[in-house]
Design a protein around this nucleic acid. Structure first.
Length: 424
RNA sequence: GUGGGUGUAGCUCAGUUGGCAGAGCACCGGGUUGUGGCCCCGGUUGUCGAGGGUUCAAGCCCCUUCACUCACCCCA
């Protein structure tokens, strides 16, 4: 037997309906707020990710699916979507038409990590990105949208964490003072953090190791080093969130694993996912468009993990699967071809129809109709053919009526319609 | 990449000091010659994850390997 690749998964009927529901909800919400869908390739040149996410981030260092194509060029299965959206924005010169562009995109991402609860090597994200707006109000609105989606999907345990990473100007000052602080707690840091403290000191603040957490309690916080412009920006984001009545906590340790973030960063965290706590994350990346060769346009975006969202939504136990409206129980060789014709016509009329082709006993066909939760069964056998009328049985009320074979699809359709009306 | 746990029927899982591979559910058929759910009766289902070793004999002991899972790390 050939098995699927480690960390990958099939989403089977029964679960896929929940995913469809999540995606439908997200689409409609984003469209209502003026976001346009953009569909992007899942393979890009490796360089795109190396330059945007950052050469010495974990993602680029050890998690990407990178390989040479037949020509020898290095290509990579995208580990996140933002880089591709930015690439597309620049490549198609969308800023020329209007620098302000709002996109959403839904699709798979790939990271070669060890799988565990809420973490897969192919996972799915809903991304939303806004280009060309530097107002902090858009930061607040983006967070509002994420929160709104979570509440529509009845997620109970979700908390907004926000932080500001400042602009390159204030971050430089902060890095200096952090680098000056770290040597004073060297003994408490884990080996990883010792390495980070030289290479990328910001990452130390993000470590979950309890000893490291303790060590950095008194470490300088970046918000204390924000320049006046960045401070003002952050204040307005908070003001906006309060205006939207969105509860949030300021999380000084929220640094995030991608280098391109500036100013506002945020995560939506939950306690329902084991060791994973982020269900959504994002932030502002004002320097990225220019860094990738585009104009100097600000941008902000976020990603929601669909796999994780599907695990924690309150809709999880709802049954979204579609049940047949009609199950045709055909008895005898003469009935089968007739029933087959009707089943096709029911389908064309939008009436979900199932039937059995094996000419089994009525009892076993009824059993199957019951198992499939069909609302009605249409019984046709030799008796019915002689009389020129079939039996329509309502599976909940057990009431049976006789329906002439002439124009049967129309008649059944009318019958189902009145049934549905009386049902509501 | 590192560590722990788990792999036996479609599913959930028993399986004693090594001695004929099991249960419940599901599925199929019958009880009711053409009427579902409850009940009763009967039936089908296995590379015991894979490979090797020890043994008269291995689901069980030893070695190797793979997968799943949880955690570290990081993130969605």
């Amino acid at each position: 037997m050939i098995q699927l690749i480690r960390g990958f998964k099939d989403i089977l009927p029964g679960e896929v309906e929940l995913w469809q529901n999540i995606e439908k909800t997200a689409r409609s919400l984003f469209e209502d707020f003026g976001f346009k869908e953009i569909r992007l390739p899942i393979l890009e040149r490796t360089e795109l990710f190396a330059r945007s996410i950052g050469e010495d981030t974990d993602i680029v260092e050890k998690e990407m699916y990178t390989f040479p194509d037949r020509k020898g060029d290095l290509i990579t299965l995208r580990p996140e979507a933002t880089a591709s959206v930015v690439r597309s924005y620049i490549q198609h010169k969308m800023y020329a038409k209007d620098p302000v562009q709002k996109f959403y995109t839904i699709g798979p991402m790939f990271r070669m990590e060890r799988p565990q609860k809420g973490r897969f090597r192919q996972f799915y994200q809903i991304n939303a990105e806004v280009f060309g707006i530097d107002s902090p109000f858009i930061d607040a609105q983006i967070i509002f949208l994420a929160v709104k989606l979570f509440s529509i999907l009845e997620v109970t345990d979700a908390k907004v964490h926000i932080n500001s990473l400042g602009c390159p100007k204030c971050r430089l000052k902060f890095k200096e003072s952090l680098s000056a602080f770290l040597p004073s707690v060297t003994e408490k840091l884990c080996p990883d953090c010792l390495r980070r403290s030289k290479k990328n000191p910001l990452r130390v603040l993000d470590c979950k190791n309890s000893s490291c957490r303790e060590a950095i309690i008194d470490a300088p916080a970046i918000i204390d080093y924000l320049c006046p412009e960045c401070t003002q920006h952050f204040e307005t984001v908070k003001y906006g969130l309060e205006k939207f009545k969105i509860p949030f906590v300021i999380d000084k340790r929220l640094v995030r694993g991608l280098d391109y973030y500036t100013r506002t960063t945020f995560e939506i965290q939950t306690g329902l996912l084991g060791a994973q706590n982020a269900v959504a994350g994002g932030g502002r990346y004002d320097s990225l468009v220019k860094a990738l060769g585009g104009p100097d346009q600000p941008a902000i975006g976020f990603a929601i993990g669909i796999d994780r969202l599907a695990e924690i939504t309150g809709l999880r136990n709802k049954d979204f699967t579609q049940k047949p409206d009609i199950y045709i129980a055909a008895l005898g060789e003469k009935s089968l071809p007739l029933a087959f014709g009707w089943s096709c016509n029911f389908g064309l009329e939008g009436i979900r129809c199932e039937m059995d082709f094996s000419n089994r006993s009525l009892k076993s066909q009824m059993k199957r109709a019951d198992r499939l939760k069909a609302s009605h069964v249409l019984i046709v056998g030799n008796n019915e053919l002689e009389e020129g009328a079939v039996i329509l049985r309502n599976m909940t009320t057990k009431k049976q009526i006789s329906i002439p074979i002439e124009n049967i699809v129309e008649k059944v359709k009318a019958e189902l319609k009145s049934y549905r009306l009386s049902d509501k």
